[in-house]
């Protein structure tokens, strides 16, 4: 069977919001993963380093964890925030 993607491409166009969404997520993914290259980081540390809102970092970091890019490290000394590192 041939590829069916060409059939849907003739009927529908990719919306601008989908294109933008892909760009935004990829940019965020690259930035967040880069912060953890040297050592594990907590969400507030990443947010501060990237100057991004905390909730935006939380959402993307948890999504990256779900997709298997990140793993949980340990809790901080105050038992408040987890550290996260890149999945080896």
């Amino acid at each position: 069977m041939g590829k069916t993607i060409d059939i849907i491409k003739q009927k529908r166009k990719v919306s601008e919001s989908v294109k933008q969404n892909i760009k935004d997520f990829n940019a965020m993914k690259k930035k967040i993963l880069a912060t953890m290259e040297i050592e594990h980081k907590s969400i507030p540390q990443i947010a501060e380093e990237l100057q991004l809102p905390l909730d935006v970092v939380t959402y993307h970091l948890m999504t990256l964890q779900k997709f298997g890019f990140i793993e949980v490290s340990e809790l901080d000394d105050m038992d408040e925030y987890y550290f996260y590192n890149l999945k080896k």
Partner: peptide, 11 residues
């Protein structure tokens, strides 16, 4: 990974 606050990931 645990019960966390959606705003900042704090327990």
């Amino acid at each position: 990974n645990h019960v966390l606050r959606p705003k900042d990931g704090k327990m």
